[in-house]
Design a protein around this nucleic acid. Sequence first.
DNA 1: ACTAATATCAGTAATAGTTACTAGTTTTAA
DNA 2: TTAAAACTAGTAACTATTACTGATATTAGT
Lengths: 128, 128
Amino acid sequence: MNLKHSKQRDCIMEFLSTRKDHPTADTVYMNVRQTFPNISLGTVYRNLTLLADIGEIARIRVGDGVDHFDADTSPHYHFICKECGSVIDLDMEDMAYINETAGKHFDGCIEGHFTYFYGKCGNCFTKS
Amino acid sequence: MNLKHSKQRDCIMEFLSTRKDHPTADTVYMNVRQTFPNISLGTVYRNLTLLADIGEIARIRVGDGVDHFDADTSPHYHFICKECGSVIDLDMEDMAYINETAGKHFDGCIEGHFTYFYGKCGNCFTKS
DNA sequence: ACTAATATCAGTAATAGTTACTAGTTTTAA
DNA sequence: TTAAAACTAGTAACTATTACTGATATTAGT
């Protein structure tokens, strides 16, 4: 896969870098349109997929049926607010050790885990 | 929500109880059609959603873009095989304590977590 | 710089999974 | 027995995503 430079892709990447809230493809689309009014949603999807494939960004699936994207590819856990749906980074150590807990009575090979936490974010918690 | 009895729902529930492999709505549909050849896919979805809402079954989202369903509603973790995609129950203790680990530097309220493990299942592991 | 190869684009159509609508059928409480 | 309401099959609609198409932009080699 021989990459060529693309202004649209740069713009998508740059936008994602400014955000810590793990936007969806649609949010990226809305924002990138301020720079490229004619950009296609397909282009956004194609580039997000491409960037995720080459490891520049991370695709995050939190079970809400929509893919979220994160320019921070360092391993970290996420929190999803049940009220407002926002996806927030958690500051906590890696839990690789739970893979061994899981593997104790399992005959296959456990390579890793996906974990996300849910509840109420700071904002929604103080409101209620 | 006042429930009425329904043969179709019974059949769906009964089929799910016989399976430990967390079928998708489509798999349920295919199998229930052997008893109700004219059952509608919509009916299957509606009843799976209803049963999940009242807590009779669990809806499992493992990030493959398809909802899986489980008649075993006791809390337990799942393993997803990267090769064959099968969803397998894990025999391991609950890890409620990781909620506190996650909450240490977080200002909201952590109520729970979703975790699933991935790798190669026993079958696919011995094959390779 | 020029050109050819090809990655990329915008626009649109197609797909998959799921939910919503509709008119007719079952279930069940009175 | 009956009538309200939950349920059904069939179908249309919806959402998120991917695939297709002909035109455009990028880039390596001259």
